[in-house]
């Protein structure tokens, strides 16, 4: 009797070991950022893949360190099969030859995806957004855009912004009346950058700076409005905080699935990416976490209530701005340095 509990897993492991060679070709190591997002991916993508192929997915968490992929590719010992990377990293990695080229014929019809999700080296998997969030208990009227964020007379109270130049310069120009479509064109000029920093200086005495994405929901007691990552506000709402989002003027970006160059199990990796990019799987994912699907057919499968929470729904996306990865790759270093000088003044 006593041996049974210990014996059973042993037997199972033995049986599994016998079955492994047959399944090994479907086994994958998938790397993501973990957290609530990792859990949603596990439910919507990993479990579906395991059920369909019989293979096993090992989930590895990382913090987006591209140096680890670089080291693997250079040593020609690639142990990761599929990796989730952020927008700026896919362009850079693709340029530097870190990723396999994506065979779109195996993924599906490019026209079904958001244009931004189609990349030579990867498939966009979800859309997240940096938005304006405010405390529903503190503000009686809803702010409608970044001009309201800058208006400390109409909406008294502190403002939360992320430490750094990224996003804030775009927000400043939007508040100064620049149209969303022109923001990066203006910011690329010397005058435009001057204008953005000047506008940011107007708000400086009222800004409470944050660093980690987890902080804005906690700041809710201290500030009237803050910039925040949409997923974090969604999580706080699910915990019962009365936080609201103004989607107009939000800046959205995508995360991508890529395969490191020289991936061992390319067929299975492609199969996983194809499946995780299908409309059904992406719709399932969006029900678990409020990040927008990249497959436009997935949106149609969601009810109005879920859609209202997503950065990709028509209502939320119509006044949003796409984060310009190429612009920041070119100008980021100089603008961040200028931000450091500006902050010291």
């Amino acid at each position: 009797m006593k041996t049974t509990p210990t014996l059973r897993p042993l037997l199972l492991a033995g049986a599994l070991a016998l079955a492994l060679p047959a399944l090994a070709q479907h086994n994958l190591t998938v790397v993501n950022f973990g957290g609530a997002n990792g859990a949603a991916q596990k439910k919507a993508y990993f479990e579906a893949y395991e059920k369909a192929t019989g293979g096993k997915i090992t989930q590895v968490e990382y913090n987006g360190e591209q140096a680890r992929i670089k080291a693997m590719v250079e040593a020609k010992k690639v142990t990761w099969d599929v990796v989730e990377v952020e927008g700026p990293d896919i362009s850079r990695g693709c340029d530097e030859g870190l990723f396999e080229r994506m065979d779109w014929s195996k993924i599906g019809n490019k026209a079904d995806f958001l244009p931004a999700a189609v990349h030579d080296c990867g498939v966009g998997t979800f859309v997240w957004s940096t938005v304006m969030a405010y405390n529903g208990d503190k503000l009686k009227t809803a702010p409608t855009g970044w001009a309201d964020f800058w208006d400390v007379k109409k909406f008294p109270g502190k403002r939360g912004l992320r430490k750094g130049a990224r996003y804030n310069l775009e927000f400043a120009l939007l508040a100064d009346g620049v149209k969303a479509a022109d923001v990066y064109k203006v910011l690329a000029t010397k005058d435009g950058a001057d204008r953005a920093f000047k506008k940011l200086a107007e708000l400086k005495p009222h800004i409470q700076w944050w660093e980690a994405g987890a902080l804005p929901p906690q700041l809710a007691g201290d500030v009237a409005m803050t910039s925040a990552f949409s997923g974090r506000i969604d999580a706080a709402q699910r915990e019962g905080q009365n936080l609201k989002i103004t989607w107009a003027g939000g800046i959205y970006d995508l995360d991508f699935w890529v395969m490191p160059k020289g991936v061992a199990n390319k067929d299975a990796a492609m199969k996983f990416i194809a499946q995780a990019s299908s409309a059904d799987a992406q719709a399932d994912y969006a029900r678990h976490i409020s990040y927008g699907p990249t497959n436009t057919k997935a949106m149609a499968k969601l009810d109005a209530k879920t859609q209202a929470l997503l950065p990709t729904s028509h209502e939320n996306a119509k006044d949003a701005l796409r984060f310009d990865v190429a612009f920041w790759a070119d100008q980021g270093e100089a603008l961040e340095k200028r931000f450091a000088a500006w902050a010291a003044q």
């Binding site: 850079r92 530097e96 870190l98 190429a326 070119d330 270093e333």
Partner: peptide
């Protein structure tokens, strides 16, 4: 020979003149 070299070059020049990255690549 490889993209990595071009990437490193582009990055180096970009830290000198903003915009060199996209120009080189």
């Amino acid at each position: 020979q490889e993209g990595a070299q071009a990437g490193a070059l582009a990055r180096r020049l970009n830290s000198e003149v903003s915009g060199a990255r996209s120009l080189i690549m």
